[in-house]
């Protein structure tokens, strides 16, 4: 296990190193240097700034410094917001995004698990079909379409919510629901398949032969075994949420990281784009690593006995 974790951590750093190098190359290649907005500066002033940011140094030196700064958590300085450093900006906006993401993932997985359980236990009934339809819609329809629809129905037409401004927790309800559609669908489908598979195993038959009733079979025996593999989809789920949050935050004007990221794309603020990209990468890579390690710890027990088929 320790060997596996070490190996994974090494790969994680190689991946991050690649991404960081790529962002550095992009920073150098892309039009719009940190001074693009400062063309009116005199040559002396420009020299001062070049000196200050070390832009006169040879590229390899800049590269090493850039990587060193990243390692320290210093993502550089925003062009757009006068001299605000990117890390501080991200941390300031983090709160809103975390609220949305956490609400969406908790709400999404809980509802998804319930739907999946109902579908599996009432297989081939109207309940099953209903839950399957919800799952198909949730997987197929992008979260930004949901977001726009929710906004149109509940904010524009029904006027239950404010349009396009952050006004405390209430403003997080619609975007959280829009983001949760994906997790609901994925969890529901996953739990349904797992439950049906588990319900067909010999150990469930043996539990029945022991005289266990419906409730004991569903919850004491099957549920746990169906739930554990759900860990594997948490990684992709987090990635999906992140992707969704970029647009959903923009649609609902949530002052989170995603909204700022999209704004920076449209205003060519490369420092923020690259900084946020690095931040996202670290976030996703760490989540996937945790999920894999978690599953690796629980997995042998399942792989060795349950899933021999």
């Amino acid at each position: 296990m320790a060997k596996y974790i070490t190996k994974r951590v090494v790969y994680m750093f190689i991946s991050l190193f690649l991404i960081a190098s790529l962002t550095f190359v992009l920073m150098k290649l892309l039009p719009g240097s940190p001074l693009a907005s400062a063309e009116k500066l005199s040559i002396e002033q420009r020299e001062v700034i070049y000196e200050k940011y070390g832009l006169n140094d040879p590229i390899p030196v800049q590269y090493i410094r850039y990587m060193g700064n990243l390692a320290k958590g210093d993502f550089g300085i925003s062009f757009q917001y006068k001299n605000a450093d990117v890390m501080t900006l991200i941390l300031k906006k983090l709160e809103y995004s975390v609220i949305l993401g956490a609400q969406a993932i908790v709400f999404g997985t809980v509802i998804g698990i319930v739907l999946g359980m109902i579908a599996a236990l009432k297989q081939n009934t109207i309940w099953d079909y209903g839950s399957t339809i919800i799952a198909i819609l949730g997987i197929s329809i992008p979260s930004f379409v949901f977001a726009v629809l929710l906004q149109f129905i509940f904010a524009v037409e029904l006027e239950w919510f404010d349009v396009g401004l952050w006004n405390g927790w209430k403003s997080s309800i619609l975007p959280s629901i829009a983001l949760a559609m994906g997790p609901i669908a994925i969890a529901a489908r996953f739990i349904r398949t797992e439950m049906i598979e588990v319900l067909g195993t010999d150990y469930i038959l043996l539990a029945k032969a022991k005289g266990a009733n419906w409730f004991e079979i569903a919850f004491k025996h099957a549920f746990r075994n169906a739930l554990i593999p759900l860990i594997t989809v948490l990684g992709p789920l987090a990635a999906g949420l992140l992707t969704g949050s970029l647009v959903v935050e923009q649609i609902f004007a949530i002052p989170g990281i995603g909204e700022q990221f999209v704004k920076s794309i449209n205003s060519n603020d490369y420092a923020i784009i690259m900084g946020t990209t690095m931040f996202f990468s670290v976030f996703l890579i760490v989540i996937i690593l945790i999920v894999d390690i978690l599953y690796g710890i629980i997995d042998p027990r399942i792989r060795l006995s349950g899933g021999s088929k």
Binding site: S15, L22, T243, T277, S281, I288
Partner: peptide
């Protein structure tokens, strides 16, 4: 490569 999030690489 699999460690690099799709979203990130696509945007870059």
């Amino acid at each position: 490569l699999i460690g690099i999030p799709t979203l990130v690489i696509v945007i870059l």
